[in-house]
Amino acid sequence: MKLSREEVLHIAQLARLGVSDEDVERAREQLSNILENFEILQSVDTDDIPPTAQSLVLQNVLREDESCDSFPRKDILANAPQEDEDSFRVRAVLE
């Protein structure tokens, strides 16, 4: 079953991804094809099988809470698309 235009737009909005009309049509086609290939999992019996989030047996890795130097402000701001004195400059969040 092909994803609807609305479904694709909803996903794009969740992912904060701007899309053109052409992108939406391509995504409907390609995502649907890929999702079809996932159907195979529905036939696998996974009752009583716990999920694996990652393959290491490590759990709750803790360390001492020690302070350490952070990066110099100017090093971090060097990569900023736009800066304003000691801050990142962004668009107004509240309009």
Binding site: V8, I11, A12, L14, A15, L17, G18, V19, A27, L35
Partner: peptide
Amino acid sequence: TRQHGFGAEVKRRIMLGTY
């Protein structure tokens, strides 16, 4: 930014994962 900064395959996977 995300529309023009990412290429087609990356956007495909972001959409797939988000879904």
